[in-house]
Design a protein around this nucleic acid. Structure first.
Length: 496
RNA sequence: GGUCUGUUCGUCUAGGGGUCUAGGACACCGCCCUUUCACGGCGGCGACACGGGUUCAAAUCCCGUACAGACUACCA
């Protein structure tokens, strides 16, 4: 039997990094064993599901390079099938009608309400004391026929236990007495999550369910449904959760943009880098290595190296520099500075285009210059955004000057106001505007003025790039070229 | 409250009875390189939650405690 796994997000928001990681692991697992990776949108919660979320999830997967096989399944399309299956279980006596009126739950502190309700019922109420559980067939039919609303609940046996072998957490057992007669079908006919998941997984012939650890306890209920349906459950593998820095739940509402995949795309992350980072959250190949290509990840991935403990996604809202996990940031920089130029170029092109800095000559007449320049500046860039922001002066005459750079490198040495334009005149004479030739002229100039090489270089850097930091200044001169270098050295804008 | 799960440097992790005075990466700090720097090189700081066992030997096995997380819904 070929392996079939699925990623089944509910479209109630953009793609969350936790979900993205679940998708990644499913994908890696499928590709590793040569199986299928399917996508199912669990849009049964009509009130919260949106088409926009679905789009953003698909986009996110595409960005990460996680291409799915076969058609997307929308769970809402299967509602009728789910209903029929619930009815079938009812007819077989494996489920029963519960005529208890639906209890109103206030949405606000739902978790607390449920916990306190459970606390109150502690010891007093058995999971099996529903008055309708053993209602005579005729009586139940009569009530139903008279139009009385009812939910359908699974009839969980009095004694026994469910068990399954989790690929990550090992043998899991749970006594029936701990499991309530779960609702399969709501009184309005709407199928509930546990039923829907099981039915769809069966229909999609899913062999391995890889999902977040928050479903570990739900799995027992699902196993019960599989059993009632006479089907063998798939293999389960639960993944440790990704937590916020305070070790609490990482939520869209509380933590905002840092948990959204689109943020990383928009903030200039290289998809391969983020994917690499995500792969190492809760899994490792057991080697002293961090950088893995997709092919290597697929090759090395296996369920038995998945962690059992949750991972913290470390970020600090108060420091801009640490707005997301440092390691993710580092990895992105690592990719930017080491990836093959041909892979990087399209990403830079895209960034420059959206900043209106791209010119078609960069792939034509100026191809060589473009490559040299990108290779020069990528050395100390962290995100793709840096190409259009810190790197702006390389692609445009319209760039900003950093106040601190002006203070530190220009205003502190007032002589530079006349020296730099003077240096420009000396540079006019350089025939071949290369590193060595430029250096010779500047060295000579420095000597004549009795100043330090650094003073001139840093002043020039500020004028030429607007920044106090950057690559070797001689290389900057060379890449900018004679004309622009001279023009900028003579410019007085920064001084005002 | 109950059930389940987990706990190695600040964070991600290696480790599965002796090779552990616990390894790597990020972050942080210092030094070097240097015209600057968020590049590079070298180095430093820094962890087996706690308490009991088992064993010649325990980060590794067992028990307890603490803490954390998940679930406990006619949400998904």
């Amino acid at each position: 039997m070929t392996t079939r796994v699925r990623f089944a997000p509910s479209p109630t928001g953009y793609l969350h990094i936790g979900s993205a990681r679940t998708a990644l692991f499913n994908y890696l697992y499928a590709r590793n064993v040569g199986g299928k990776f399917l996508l199912r949108i669990e849009d049964t919660d009509m009130e919260r599901s949106t088409e926009e979320s679905t789009r953003s999830i698909i986009e996110g997967l595409k960005w990460l390079g996680l291409d799915y096989d076969e058609e997307i399944i929308f769970q809402s399309n299967n509602a009728e099938k789910h209903r029929q299956i619930a009815l079938k279980l009812l007819n077989e006596g494996k489920a029963y009608r519960d005529f208890t009126p639906k209890a109103e739950t206030s949405d606000k502190n739902i978790k607390e309400t449920i916990a306190s309700r459970a606390r109150e019922n502690q010891g007093e109420k058995s999971m099996r004391d529903n008055p309708f559980r053993d209602l005579e067939q005729e009586e139940s039919d009569a009530k139903a026929n008279s139009g009385e609303p009812f939910a359908i609940r699974l009839k969980v046996a009095e004694t026994g236990k469910t068990s399954f072998e989790d690929a990550v957490y090992g043998l899991q057992e749970r006594d029936y007495s701990e499991i309530e007669d779960l609702v399969l079908l709501r009184s309005d006919g709407h199928p509930l999550y546990n039923l829907a998941v099981v039915c769809d997984d069966i229909e999609m012939e899913i062999t391995d369910v890889i999902r977040g650890q928050d479903h570990l306890t739900n799995t027992h209920k699902q196993v019960l449904i599989y059993e009632a349906l006479g089907k063998t459950p798939p293999r389960f593998a639960h993944l440790p959760l990704i937590l916020a820095p305070n070790k609490g739940k990482l939520s869209k509402r509380k933590h905002g943009a840092v948990v959204s995949m689109t943020t990383y795309r928009d903030k200039g992350f290289v998809a391969a880098a983020f994917r690499n980072f995500l792969a190492l959250l809760g899994w490792s190949a057991g080697e002293e290595r961090e950088i893995y290509s997709l092919v290597e990840l697929i090759e090395k991935f296996s369920l038995d190296h998945i962690h059992r403990s949750n991972a913290v996604f470390n970020f600090n809202e108060t420091y801009e520099r640490h707005w997301t996990d440092d390691k993710a940031l580092w990895m992105n920089a690592e990719y930017i500075r080491t990836m093959p130029f041909d892979d990087l170029l399209p990403l830079v092109k895209n960034e420059l285009k959206s900043a209106k800095l791209w010119r078609d000559e960069y792939e034509d007449d100026d191809k060589e210059w473009c490559e040299q320049t990108i290779n020069l500046i990528r050395e100390r860039f962290f995100t793709l955004k840096d190409f259009s922001e810190q790197g702006r002066a390389y692609f445009s005459e319209d760039y900003d000057f950093d106040e601190k750079a002006i203070e530190k490198n220009l205003k502190k040495f007032p002589d530079l106001q006349t020296w730099l334009p003077e240096l420009a005149n000396h540079l006019e004479s350089v025939e071949n505007f290369t590193h060595d030739n430029i250096e010779a002229v500047i060295k000579e100039f420095v000597e004549a003025k009795g100043t330090k090489f650094g003073v001139i270089m840093n002043g020039a850097r500020t004028l030429l790039t607007g920044l106090a930091v950057g690559p070797s200044m001689l290389a900057v001169f060379e890449t900018l070229g004679k004309e622009k270098s001279i023009l900028r050295l003579k410019s007085q804008i920064a001084w005002n």
